[in-house]
């Protein structure tokens, strides 16, 4: 009797399922706790999305709340606050794409050109660090440095230049949050690019140099093509997450700059769903966002495939 072995540690796959169950029961048992947690806190909320089509009443629960059809969505469509949140989200997403996205790439290229391993390691360990800070901490640091009573304004006042309060100014809010994201995440973002850079065959550079290609030509013709796949992947992710610009960051700063500028889709769900007990309305806003996000991910992947890259998943 021949059995099919898949891979080196593979187990014979073409066996009666009873035999396989007895053989693999401890493996299945191992996955159970995680599966139970996912069913409870990821899948159950998926069914909880029916509240978006109800007039949810906390006392009656999901099962007994009256149905409302598409009423919540009609409310959303005619709610200027909701469209304000959509507009803010898209605008912030766009600003982050333009200003944030290139920073890790540039930083990785710069760091990659540093020869000393010790210096590289030191810089890496410093720039990765803020990624592990909480948003509360990061924003507190920004407040202390740039806020009305912060270090920079203190310096400006002492030199009679006037004050410059960016923390509460709605006009510069997009720049403020983007600089916060850059400060906190750009350093961590270089990891993928450093890995891609390390995978480029160094012989290519030598051959190109022997053929007379200068520094910039090598960057353009060898380095950037080597990074292409990763850049496309990160772009796909960024586009797919266009409606997610960060939640806690806005939650914390919403009151300081006002909801006209700082309301994004996620905070909208929270404030008009949970904070006001209008659960169905918030759930509808969340569902709207999820559906559009799925379409965006799908579209961004199509785009990546059209450019001959893998994107997030392969066809």
């Amino acid at each position: 009797m021949t059995t099919l072995r898949s891979g080196r540690t593979g187990r014979p796959a073409r066996l009666n399922w009873r035999i396989r169950l007895r053989r693999d029961r401890s493996l299945i048992l191992m996955t159970l706790p995680a599966v139970v947690l996912l069913l409870a806190f990821n899948y159950a909320p998926l069914f909880g999305l029916v509240t978006a089509f109800q007039e949810y009443d906390p006392l009656a629960g999901v099962w007994n709340s009256p149905w409302a059809g598409l009423y919540q969505f009609e409310r959303l469509m005619s709610d200027p606050l909701f469209w304000g949140a959509v507009r803010n989200t898209l605008y912030l997403s766009f600003v982050q794409l333009i200003l944030f996205f290139p920073v890790p790439i540039a930083l990785a290229l710069l760091l990659n050109s540093v020869l000393s391993q010790r210096v590289r390691n030191f810089i890496q360990s410093v720039v990765y660090l803020p990624h592990f800070f909480s948003w509360v901490l990061a924003i507190t640091i920004f407040q202390q440095m740039l806020g009305g009573a912060g270090a920079v304004n203190h310096f400006l006042r002492n030199n009679d230049i006037g004050t410059w309060d960016v923390m509460t100014n709605p006009d510069t809010f997009a720049l403020l949050v983007t600089s916060q994201v850059i400060w906190k995440e750009a350093g961590w973002g270089i990891i993928v690019f450093l890995a891609a850079l390390a995978a480029i065959n160094t012989d290519l550079y030598e051959a190109a140099a022997a053929d007379g290609a200068g520094r910039w030509r090598r960057l353009w013709h060898i380095t950037l093509p080597g990074l292409r796949a990763v850049i496309v992947l990160m772009l796909v992710l960024r586009l797919g997450n266009a409606l997610t610009v960060g939640f806690e960051q806005f939650l914390i700063q919403r009151n300081a700059v006002g909801h006209d500028t700082a309301e994004v889709l996620d905070t909208f769900s929270f404030y008009y769903g949970i904070a006001t007990n209008d659960y169905s309305y918030g759930a509808a806003a969340g569902l709207f966002k999820s559906v559009i996000s799925l379409l965006l991910i799908w579209g961004a992947n199509k785009l990546a495939h059209a450019f001959g890259e893998d994107g997030l998943y392969r066809k």
Binding site: T31, V35, F41, F47, Y279, G286, L287, S290
Partner: peptide
């Protein structure tokens, strides 16, 4: 099981249904 898990990376109930479940 793997597919069951990966699906949760792409679709989730969102804030309010999770809150209601918890």
């Amino acid at each position: 099981l793997l597919t069951l898990m990966i699906i949760t990376m792409f679709v989730n109930g969102g804030l309010i249904p999770t809150f209601l479940v918890v």
